[in-house]
């Protein structure tokens, strides 16, 4: 890990652990102040000059502490606007899903929509906001633009893929947190005269859990590393994002029941921390492309390559010049 990424992670760990149970209103000013919005802005333009690996690392930590703020949008929006030649307005900028939904939309100053290759930056104040919540209890609002956009520009970026990138990173962090919590529980909870973790059946379930947590994290890191090599498809939906999001969804499917099974009723209370991770994981699994969406995208892509074409494609992408991490 580079020295700058290490410093970045130390800073994020320190701040996000303090904000772990803080609501948006009190958390956001401190996140904004820390300057994450400039993470992907080049140094010569006054930014941090970070890469996708840095973004992955920070978003993973956000997931680890179940941050109550849309950090992915806050990091990606300024970069998108920079590429489109639009000066970012002050305040939180949200990224709209294809259906107009925006995480924490009511708290945003502006929202970015991309449709038919055109990026539009619209003010929330002039839009209709239909408030809603994700199944994790986070604001998930429908933004219907009212007046003319503040700015617009041609844009080839794929917002679903960018959102998926953030969710893979956050899911890896949240799954790690859920895993650590479960490990601690089975090590301390005593039944039948011994810690749950001494039972072989529990050990096997924990091993299964850790294997999936490993897969999601490996896929996420490799996804970020591939983007840093410039492996982006023309439509902005990198093959690696699709594969990593789908694999992440599959890992969540396996681990959600294990975490709760091993916790028993204790893990089912609103008070105990587990649900802060597991509810988010289940919300993220369905957001920015569920299994069917990404399996369809990937399946179409691979079918066009022909059977013998898939292997040369994935080896070419990973052999591309430069070190992976």
């Amino acid at each position: 890990m580079s020295e700058s990424r290490q410093l970045l992670c130390e800073m994020a760990n320190g701040l996000f652990s303090e904000l772990a149970e803080v609501g948006f209103d009190n958390a956001w000013p401190r996140i904004e102040e820390a300057g994450f919005a400039s993470l992907l802005i080049p140094e010569e333009q006054g930014g941090f000059g970070g890469d996708w690996g840095d973004a992955y690392a920070v978003l993973r930590i956000a997931g680890r502490y179940a941050l109550s703020a849309p950090l992915g949008d806050a990091i990606f929006a300024p970069r998108l606007l920079m590429e489109a030649g639009i000066k970012p307005p002050a305040g939180l900028i949200g990224l709209a899903r294809a259906n107009g939904k925006v995480g924490y939309g009511r708290h945003c100053g502006c929202v970015i929509l991309i449709e038919d290759g055109e990026l539009r930056l619209v003010e929330v104040a002039t839009s209709e906001v239909v408030e809603g919540y994700s199944l994790a209890g986070e604001p998930f609002d429908h933004i219907c633009p009212g007046g003319a956009p503040l700015a617009s520009a041609p844009c080839a970026a794929n917002l679903i893929a960018m959102g998926a990138f953030a969710l893979v990173a956050q899911s890896a962090g949240a799954l790690d947190a859920a895993f650590q919590l479960t490990l601690e529980h089975v090590n301390t909870r005593v039944q039948f005269g011994k810690a749950l973790g001494r039972f072989q059946a529990v050990q096997q379930a924990m091993a299964e859990f850790s294997v999936e947590a490993a897969a999601i994290d490996a896929a996420g890191q490799a996804m970020a590393a591939a983007l840093d090599k410039g492996n982006v498809l023309d439509d902005g939906a990198a093959f690696e994002i699709a594969a990593a999001k789908l694999r992440a969804n599959m890992a969540i499917e396996k681990c959600f029941p294990i975490a709760h099974r091993l916790h028993g009723a204790i893990g089912f209370t609103i008070e105990y921390a587990l649900n802060r991770y597991t509810r988010r994981l289940m919300a993220w699994r369905g957001d920015c492309g569920n299994d069917a969406y990404w399996a369809g995208q990937l399946g179409q892509h691979v079918s066009k390559l022909s059977g013998g074409g898939f292997w040369p494609e994935i080896t070419r992408r990973s052999d591309a010049a430069g070190s992976v991490v």
Binding site: A215, Q221, A242, A244, R247, L298, S303
Partner: peptide, 22 residues
Amino acid sequence: PPEPVVQLIGRLAAEIWTLRQM
């Protein structure tokens, strides 16, 4: 190909890619 097979190919591709990285 029929949609269920497309879906299956996508899932298998995601797993192959992930396992290769690991």
